[in-house]
Design a protein around this nucleic acid. Sequence first.
DNA 1: TATTGTTATACTCTATAACTATA
DNA 2: TATAGTTATAGAGTATAACAATA
Lengths: 145, 145
Amino acid sequence: MTKIPEIADVAAALQLSIGLCIRRIRQPLAEGELSLPEASVLKRLEFGGPTTVTELAKADQITVQSMGTTLSALESRGLVERHPHPSDGRRSVLSITKTGLRALENKHNSRSQQVANALSEGFSPSELQQLMVAAPLIERLAQSL
Amino acid sequence: MTKIPEIADVAAALQLSIGLCIRRIRQPLAEGELSLPEASVLKRLEFGGPTTVTELAKADQITVQSMGTTLSALESRGLVERHPHPSDGRRSVLSITKTGLRALENKHNSRSQQVANALSEGFSPSELQQLMVAAPLIERLAQSL
DNA sequence: TATTGTTATACTCTATAACTATA
DNA sequence: TATAGTTATAGAGTATAACAATA
């Protein structure tokens, strides 16, 4: 019989694990690597097509200004391009460049890929299953903070 | 039959959920609240008793210098105290103060408590169980990054 | 020499505030 | 007025480098 866990125990366990994740993932990247927010933006542009700063900010639940910072960094490295919106002069339309697509393909240049590599090397299928189940729960937790 | 999840799917799901957690938890705290690293230090001092900067840094897997920053902030708010080590003049011994203990007790003044509150309000026992199973896996993932 | 700790500096990712330009 | 975006500034949490004091 599986015992119902105490809230405090779950909270403590998650804080420990997620806290460590935060610290690890946040560590400085080597030259040219993609940070988590950068990879997130590039993936959205790859799969969702060209869009605006405001839409990208909404998708990642950060402010427009913060998204602007990330986009400027990506633009200066030639990974995204800014074009004027055809009908609305206020907007800019962002799209991923060929260089950006190549950056995403590289298996070692992003935290995303490092996560994937770590998973494939150190976890069993049933553990992957358990992580898959937990992911949406963690997202819901984040949403409610 | 539960399907074995694709590595890429697990990686993407975890990035989304943990990434959002990172952004949420990192948001500025209200005056006097405890940040995640601050609460972590206070809890260690509460349960593990007085110890040194180096030990605390090891426990949270950050550099001594970074831990020093956190401790200085806590000290200036009167939540921890620094005392000379009895036999080794190089070391300082940190301990939690009564004010620090009171800060930990307050149910609303830390990210930790916010996590606990969110869990108790929005998750079923079986979901808590699933999170409990995932926590050590996430920690192992973080360790291997 | 090795260990403990501090100070100085910088980086990433985020925020708020104030602004310009367009609708 | 409202919306889209930029620029300026600040803050949290980390890092590395260089140093002083003690073992």
